[in-house]
Simulated assay, not measured.
Amino acid sequence: MTFTKPLASFLGASIAFALHCTPALAASTQSPDAAAVKAVTEQFATDLAKGDLKAISRLYTDDARLLPPNDDPVSGRAAILAYFEKTLRPDLVGGATFDHYEIYGGENSAISLSQIRMLDTKGQVIERGKQTIVLLKQDGKWKIHRDMWSDNAPTSPEKP
């Protein structure tokens, strides 16, 4: 499936970044705005279920960056929309669910770690993985600034 490899790389990079940042953020533990941070991811899921990729792109900062698995970074809201138009097409992906949240941060920045299930158009799970997003508060609203994910599928052995 076209979406699987990018999802796998994205989730892997996200987890690596989160593990790198966790000690620095541990002092502030749970974000004081955890519900609002979580709401951004839940809005992503709602918009994806509707097939509204433009609405999803508006959840990102202007200079946001996707760090997809096994792919180059995708920078800027317009490029992110174009990436999602290829990988999250409504004929391929019907939605997503997020759970097992860990949210760390402060007043104007946060990191959200969650588990993700990608769904097909019939609501069946087609992929399970992990997501790490870095959010910034801009104009009083939380926006995704960095987005990384990976899937839980085992990696295939290297070919000689």
Rank of each mutant, 00 (worst) to 15 (best):
I111D: 02
I103K: 09
R146T: 06
F98P: 12
L66G: 04
D151T: 12
S156T: 13
R146G: 05
S114M: 05
I116Q: 10
Y104V: 09
L136P: 00
A153G: 08
E85Q: 15
L113K: 11
Q124W: 01
Q124K: 12
Q138M: 07
F84Q: 13
S109Q: 08
S114Q: 05
L119N: 10
L66R: 09
M148D: 06
W149F: 11
F84H: 15
S75L: 10
T132C: 12
E85A: 11
E85C: 02
A96E: 07
G106D: 10
I133Y: 06
I111G: 01
D151W: 01
K137S: 06
N70A: 10
P69K: 08
Q124A: 15
V125E: 09
K141Q: 15
T132V: 02
W149L: 08
L136K: 11
D120I: 08
V74W: 00
T97Y: 01
A82Q: 11
I111Q: 07
N152Q: 12
D120N: 14
L92G: 14
D151M: 01
K130L: 06
I111N: 05
P69C: 10
I126L: 09
I144V: 15
G76A: 14
S112R: 09
A78M: 03
V93L: 13
A96N: 07
H145I: 06
A110D: 03
D147G: 04
V134G: 08
D151A: 13
K122W: 00
D72I: 03
I126E: 11
E107Y: 01
D139F: 01
A82C: 01
P73H: 07
I116H: 02
Y83S: 15
D120M: 09
V125D: 06
L113C: 09
I133W: 03
G105A: 11
P69R: 11
I111T: 04
M148T: 09
V125M: 03
M118H: 04
N70S: 07
L136M: 01
G106Y: 02
S150D: 10
L66C: 04
T87E: 00
D99L: 06
E127R: 13
Y104N: 14
L92V: 10
K86V: 00
V74K: 00
I126N: 03
